[in-house]
Write a protein that binds this DNA or RNA. Structure first.
Length: 402
DNA sequence: AATCCGGGGCC
DNA sequence: GGCCCAGGATT
């Protein structure tokens, strides 16, 4: 006998105080309302959506390319952040063919600052797949959509429903929060297998006439009346159906177990300046975080809180066979937080001796081939760099201004 | 199933 | 400082 997730005593609220007129099936252990109420729920939700939906650039039409680009950008990224990136991306790569032909540097440049850079690399792989195997036309079958690189269950559902009017759910963190509150579901949304519960419920709830709008309405709800921190469930268009609202337990849902803390990593950044006032930049290699983006050399400290000027001098000499004039103290202490790492960076400014510049170039050619260069502060927009690199360069520019 | 992968916003 | 965000690939 399968345990019912939401409690029977809670459910009576539905029948006593709200618009629920029929109890429906138990789906993946969750008691939901029946088909009649479902119809009213869809009607109220979509009526609200028609009046209040956000005006977003990717909602201009149902072009699958635009929907696709927006969905990839929106993975783990907030709407406000995405809007400008989206408009620029469509300008630079107006078609799937343009995306397929781009250089990696151009891809990274367009994505610079958005994070999770494999998203855009995967998108190009998918674009090339579409050109080679789908005659340049975005596939319509959900299995084919999900087979594209970078497209998982959520994004496949979003594209299939929004661009192609297919009645499939699109379950992301937003949707899980909305549904968990709607039915008072106790399942831990951090546990991967529990996503299936929400997919089944989403499949049950979805409006077959307007699946794309239905899924987007859930998202808009999740960013407004059903937001994580400051929800206003009593004003929500679905308040009459919402079990946690009726029980006053909104903030108890969704249940989510904690993730681990980011690990501290300590670096010294080498700001090596040549005679022209340029700084040494190196392209990060394939195996590294932020791969193929450009960075000043980073030394990983062997112990926490290393400020040791002598360590910097020794490592610079060992790595590059030169002995620049190094400032005794770091210019700053920069913190940069990734999901799983917390970088602490101390930038050291050093000036190369004139007679050693040619020697250094030779060493760099040997060690890095084409993957290094001298860069003036004013030319930083020429190379793809991650945000942490901009922070380091800001410290450098501030120092030079003094 | 757990880990890796960015960056910004909010409290 | 902690958690969230229109997640997916890899192991």
């Amino acid at each position: 006998m399968k345990e019912i997730n939401n409690q029977a005593e809670d459910l009576t609220v539905w029948l006593n105080t709200s618009a629920i007129v029929d109890l429906g099936p138990i789906i993946a252990g969750v008691q939901v309302f029946g088909p009649e109420t479902r119809q009213a729920f869809q009607r109220d939700l979509l009526a609200w959506y028609d009046q209040e939906k956000r005006d977003l650039p990717w909602r201009e039409n149902q072009d699958p390319y635009r929907v696709w680009v927006s969905e990839i950008m929106l993975q783990q990224t907030q709407v406000d952040t995405v809007i400008n990136y989206f408009n620029n991306f469509m300008k630079v790569f107006p078609t799937i063919a343009d995306l397929a032909q781009a250089t990696e540097a151009d891809l990274l440049k367009v994505w610079q600052g958005l994070g999770y850079y494999s998203r855009v690399r995967n998108m190009q792989a998918a674009a090339r797949d579409i050109m080679a195997n789908h005659e340049g036309v975005f596939p319509t079958e959900i299995k084919a959509i999900k087979a594209l690189k970078g497209i998982g269950p959520y994004t496949a559902g979003a594209i299939a429903s929004i661009a192609f009017n297919q009645a499939v759910p699109a379950i992301d963190g937003n949707a899980m929060r909305v549904l968990a509150r709607l039915f008072a579901i106790d399942a831990d949304i951090a546990v991967a297998k529990n996503r299936k519960i929400f997919e089944e419920i989403g499949s049950y709830l979805i409006d077959y006439n307007r699946p794309g709008d239905f899924n987007q309405a859930i998202m808009d709800l999740g960013s407004s009346y059903c937001s994580y921190k400051n929800p206003q469930p009593e004003l929500s268009p679905i308040r009459a159906y919402n079990l946690s609202t009726l029980n006053g337990t909104t903030l108890a849902y969704p249940v989510k177990s904690k993730q681990k803390k980011a690990r501290d990593v300590y670096y010294q950044a080498l700001l090596i300046e040549n005679q022209q006032g340029q700084i040494l930049m190196i392209k990060r290699s394939d195996g590294q975080l932020l791969k193929n983006m450009w960075s000043v050399p980073l030394l990983e400290s062997r112990r926490d809180q290393v400020t040791d000027y002598q360590y910097v001098v020794a490592e610079t000499s060992a790595n590059y066979q030169v002995s620049p004039i190094v400032m005794k103290e770091p210019l700053a202490e920069i913190k940069h937080i990734f999901t799983h790492l917390k970088w602490h960076i101390r930038p050291f400014y050093m000036r190369l001796r004139p007679e050693e510049e040619a020697l250094l170039a030779k060493q760099l050619d040997k060690a890095y081939g084409n993957s290094w260069c001298w860069l003036a502060a004013s030319d930083m927009d020429q190379l793809p760099v991650a945000r942490v690199q901009e922070k380091i360069w800001q410290v450098y520019r501030d120092f030079k201004k003094q």
